[in-house]
């Protein structure tokens, strides 16, 4: 996926969501659970749970050099992570 993160498109981005990923930029490397990818800017939202707190990192799409899948999400991971960001679990805007 080198160099082509922006070109991957929303369907491939969605397949990475709720999974643990490694994101490389020119100088740094970030790891975390992928909460979402902004389809407009291709930026990634990564979350790491540290001692019952959530540390959130947004990596800007233009700076991404490589994204690697590390681990599939396990069961409650997604909801568990959202509980740190929102008092209520996410519901669809369509509902």
């Amino acid at each position: 996926m080198q160099g082509g993160w922006r070109a991957c498109g929303p369907r491939l981005w969605l397949r990475h969501v709720d999974k643990r990923v490694k994101v490389k930029t020119r100088r740094q490397e970030h790891r975390g659970w992928l909460l979402s990818v902004d389809p407009v800017s291709a930026s990634l939202v990564l979350v790491n749970l540290v001692e019952s707190r959530a540390s959130v990192c947004v990596v800007m799409g233009h700076a991404v050099e490589e994204v690697e899948l590390l681990q599939d999400g396990g069961g409650e991971t997604g909801e568990h992570i959202w509980s740190f960001l929102n008092p209520t679990p996410p519901c669809s805007l369509d509902a």
Binding site: G9, P10, R11, W13, L14, V17, L35, S36, V37, D38, P39, V40, S43, V45, V56, V58, L85, N86, P90, S92, L93
Partner: peptide, 16 residues
């Protein structure tokens, strides 16, 4: 499918 993926991702990003 692409539009659906786009809307799911964007909603999640906006919530972030």
């Amino acid at each position: 499918q692409e539009q659906h993926a786009r809307s799911v991702l964007r909603e999640r990003f906006l919530r972030c």
